[in-house]
Design a protein around this nucleic acid. Sequence first.
DNA 1: ATTGAAAGAATGTCAGACAATCCTGTTGAC
DNA 2: GTCAACAGGATTGTCTGACATTCTTTCAAT
Lengths: 223, 223
Amino acid sequence: MPPDLNLRISPRTVQQETVGKLRLAILSGLFQPGSRLIESQLCAQLGISRPSLREALRSLEAERLIEIVPNRGPSIPALSWEVATAIYEVRELLEVEAAGRCASRISPEQLGELERSLSAFEEAASSNDSIAQVMTAADFYSIILANCGNPILEEVHRGLVARISFFRGRSMSLEGRAQSSLAEMREIFESIAAGDEKAARKASKQHVLRAKAAAKISMDSDI
Amino acid sequence: MPPDLNLRISPRTVQQETVGKLRLAILSGLFQPGSRLIESQLCAQLGISRPSLREALRSLEAERLIEIVPNRGPSIPALSWEVATAIYEVRELLEVEAAGRCASRISPEQLGELERSLSAFEEAASSNDSIAQVMTAADFYSIILANCGNPILEEVHRGLVARISFFRGRSMSLEGRAQSSLAEMREIFESIAAGDEKAARKASKQHVLRAKAAAKISMDSDI
DNA sequence: ATTGAAAGAATGTCAGACAATCCTGTTGAC
DNA sequence: GTCAACAGGATTGTCTGACATTCTTTCAAT
C-alpha cells in the first residue's frame, strides 16, 4: 500500500471551516458595519448546529472581527476613524520594521515570489477590479511579513490588517490610488531587492502613510 | 427607591466569567506548559456545562493562551525560545514607541499614578515575593501603554505580554534581577517625567533588552 | 522488547429545551 | 399628536443528553 501522504494534517473541523467562511465573508464586506448577525440564520445558511456556530463566533470575537454584547449577540463592529488611525499607526510600526528586516535577509527565491506578486498587483491595478487589487496587494505584504524573520510580527500584522479591510477596498477604488500604490510598492520592492534596509524602511513608511491618507479620504467622501 | 447604580454594566456571562478564571489560572502558571486540559474535569471544577466551557476555550485559543488540536483537545502551549524571542522583539517595538509617546503627552495625574506604581514595585522588589513583583511591574507598563494615546498599541502589547508571563515570573526570581529592573524602570519614569521622548525611548529599549536577556538566562539555567 | 489489537477515555458535533433578555408595535394617557 | 407603559415575539445564554470519531493506553502475542 502506498504511504499515506496525508501526514498528520489536522482534520478541518466544522468550527475551523466555519471560522474560515465567516472571516472571508466579513473581510469581503458582505456584512454592513453595525449590522447584527442572527445565530439561527447563520446556522441555517451554514448548515451547522448552534454550539458549533457559537464557538466559531467566539474565535472571531477574540480576533476583533465581530463584537458580542451579552444578550444582544454578535454584530459587525463599526470602525471609528479614531480606532482606524490607531491601527494604521501600529501597522506602520510593524510593517516598517518588517520591510527593513526583509531587506537584509530575504532569500532569492522569496524575492522572486515578491516580484511575482508585485506583477500580479500591477496587472490588477490596471484593471478596475478593486477586489483583485486588495487581494494581490495583501499577497505582497504577506510575503514581506513572512520573510522578516519574526513570526509574531507577521501574526500581529495580519490581525490588524484584517480589521481595516473595510477601508482597504474603498480606498483602492479611489481615483488613481491603485496606480500610486503600485509606485510605492515598487519602491519598497526595489529597496528590498537592493538589500537597502534603510530605504526599505523609508519606502514602507511612506506607503503606509499614504494608504492611511487614502483611507481617510474615502471615509470622508461619503456618509 | 434609590436609583440603580448598576448602570448598564454588561452582565457577566458564564462564558466571560470562565474566560477570566481560566486566563488568570494560566497566567499565574497553574498549569504546566504542554499539559492538557480535560474538558470534563474543567466543567466539573468550574461547575459549568461543556458548551459554555468550549466557548471560553475558543476565546483563549484565539488569544494564543491555549492551543486546541483537533481530536486532541486543549493544552497549554510550550513556549519555545524562538517564539519568545520574537515576542520580546515585537514587545520592544511597541513598548519603546509607547514610552516615547507617553513622554510627550501624559497628564500630571497619570504621571502621579505612574510614580505610585513605581513605588509599589520598589517595595515589591525589596521583598522576595516574585508574584507581587510581576504584578506591580505589569501595572507600571499598563499605565505607560494606557497613556500612549493609541489603544491598539495597548491592546496588542497586553496580548503579547500575556504570552510570555511564564518567563516573567521566573526571570524576576533571578538574583538581582528585581533590583536592576527597578533601576531601569526608574530611568524610564524619569525620562517620561522630564518629557524627554528620546530618553524615554532609549531607556525603554534598554529595559526590554535586559528583560529578554534575563528571561534567556532563566530559561537556560534549568530545563 | 516490539508489535498489534481491543478497551477505555476524550473530543467533535448535533438536537432540543427553557429561562432571561431584548426589540417592536400597539395601546392608552395626557 | 406625543410620549409612556405594555404585551408579544424574537433572540440569546445555558444546560442536558446523546452518539460517532478519534486518540490513548493496556494487555496479549510473537
